[in-house]
């Protein structure tokens, strides 16, 4: 039966059920700590409304494209290059196939 719940990984094993039990323990602990906190939050007051620099925001939705704005901005040179690589031109795709074919032939025949 122990074989069914874990898989050997060579250096150790991975047993998801034990992980789930541990996860539940951590969750219960987290709930306990959380429940000891102060209750100043009041529903239905201005505390629920989103503010941006002290201004009320009408439509407080953060679009998917605004998530990780910093990461995307930092990676922009790489992403632009990769997007340029996927140019949509079928000639270039066929060319890449020839490149791979040439590499494989060289590797195998060498």
């Amino acid at each position: 039966m122990t074989e069914a719940i874990k898989i050997e990984t060579g250096q150790g094993y991975w047993a998801p059920l034990i992980f789930v039990v541990a996860l539940l323990g951590v969750l219960i602990l987290a709930v306990l700590i959380w429940s000891r906190g102060r209750r100043e939050y009041k529903r239905g007051t201005e505390q629920e409304l989103p503010f941006l620099s002290g201004e009320k925001v009408e439509n407080p939705r953060v679009g998917a494209l605004h998530l990780y704005w910093g990461l995307a901005e930092a990676l922009r040179p790489l992403l632009e290059r990769l997007r340029g690589w996927h140019s949509g031109n079928i000639n270039e795709y066929a060319g890449w196939f020839l490149v791979i074919l040439a590499v494989v032939v060289l590797l195998v025949l060498a």
């Binding site: 690589w85 890449w96 490149v99 791979i100 494989v104 195998v108 025949l109």
Partner: peptide, 29 residues
């Protein structure tokens, strides 16, 4: 032999393309 190896290269190229390995994955997305 050399012919076997050439055939291996052709198999590899053809099947890697159909399996969508980069850099011949462009068709897959």
């Amino acid at each position: 032999s050399a012919v076997d190896r050439l055939a291996l290269a052709l198999f590899l190229g053809a099947l890697l393309m159909k399996a969508a390995a980069a850099p011949v994955h462009f068709w897959a997305p």
